[in-house]
Design a protein around this nucleic acid. Sequence first.
DNA 1: GTGACAAATAAGTCTGACTTTTTCTTCTCG
DNA 2: CGAGAAGAAAAAGTCAGACTTATTTGTCAC
Lengths: 233, 233
Amino acid sequence: MSTPGRGLHGRVLDSLGPAITAGAYPPGSVLRTDELAQHFEVSRSVMREAVRVLESMHLVESRRRVGVTVRPESEWNVYDPQVIRWRLAGADRPRQLRSLTVLRSAIEPVAAGLAARHATAEQCAELTECALGMVAHSRGHQLAGYLVHDVAFHRVILDASGNEMFARLGDVVAEVLSGRTHHDVMFEDPDPAAVTLHVQLAEAVREGDPVRAEQLTREITVGALQELDILAP
Amino acid sequence: MSTPGRGLHGRVLDSLGPAITAGAYPPGSVLRTDELAQHFEVSRSVMREAVRVLESMHLVESRRRVGVTVRPESEWNVYDPQVIRWRLAGADRPRQLRSLTVLRSAIEPVAAGLAARHATAEQCAELTECALGMVAHSRGHQLAGYLVHDVAFHRVILDASGNEMFARLGDVVAEVLSGRTHHDVMFEDPDPAAVTLHVQLAEAVREGDPVRAEQLTREITVGALQELDILAP
DNA sequence: GTGACAAATAAGTCTGACTTTTTCTTCTCG
DNA sequence: CGAGAAGAAAAAGTCAGACTTATTTGTCAC
């Protein structure tokens, strides 16, 4: 799914990135490039490349005579897929999953509305196929197969919205859905109501009914929020 | 606002990044690190660091024996603030502004609803102050002053939502709002109706009325969409 | 205390040599 | 003539060392 350890600098990142995002170095901590290079047993050039990447993610800031200082969490590029992965792999994974699910609940209904307007015939067909796949795997502990179709379904919706910002959230949604299946909630078969909603959503998009598509997606995302106990009292 | 040219590699990025995002090198184009280094008159080490950053943004991919190949637009990290700036500075700025405004229209209503639940007293005060500032600068060609308060207003809403993914979109919103003021639409005083909506929204948040806050924000964002002729027929 | 000057420090830069991976070419053998 | 193996070539990757530069800190005179 991701791209682990492309080259030496990549391996350094795979180690240092998660450490920083996990809070191993509190904000304001100062690292020295040379020490890091020694610690990871790589040359300074490799270490510098890694630091540059962390810097471009706003995880650290490199200043002369000072060193490489860790930035506060509030400045991180939390939309960077790599940062998202690192954080999801860390200790406060549940908090990440909540943030991202709230994000989904804002984006997906609007995306579905747009999809109902702009989806091509081919995309409608894919959508129906995914929904059927979900139905087919909705009973009898076929969670893996269900997940595949669920992820594909939401990807198609986001793509069909015609908005590239929405489309690029496909990976995030995939991460959230698969995270939910593998680690957290969902030990048994998926909620039949959710399955039905997906089938109906495919219908609404196919029929070009934006209002219904948006409403159905809201119901789907409300379900996702409830699973994580994110709820209005 | 941004961080221009931090070091030599930064200056290379400021030149190469916009070129790539502007489509100067079509997807699949192959660049050579050495040639780039020569062209920009920097050492290979500096050039390599720049390439690493572009790689982390998924703008290019570096492979042995092949070179640095430009990735298709669909793979770029379009949420990276730097990439957003580069693209907004380019030729298809209008298209970017539309994408981002649609994104706003999805995010901000939900954020406002959450803000109505979670805003602190201090945030409520800030919000009211911003709204008053908008009113004060709403007539007599005081667009600059209006913009400052408008941006601050939306930042507070996003922050007060308590969701970090929303909060981190503050810069994007600022970019969109200031772009609209400086370059595109808005040559005269802002729409009085929009000003009123902001005042009412501050009220709704202060009174802890999520439904009204969300609805008012939808009306605000509908206005923003209409300005850019993004409309459902 | 304030301002200027000097020293220390760590990032930044450059260069050159070497390694490794991947691709292309070519040669051989069935 | 085609397939597969051996070899060559190309470009990124890695490393080590010397040097530069900006920034901070400390010191000294005023």
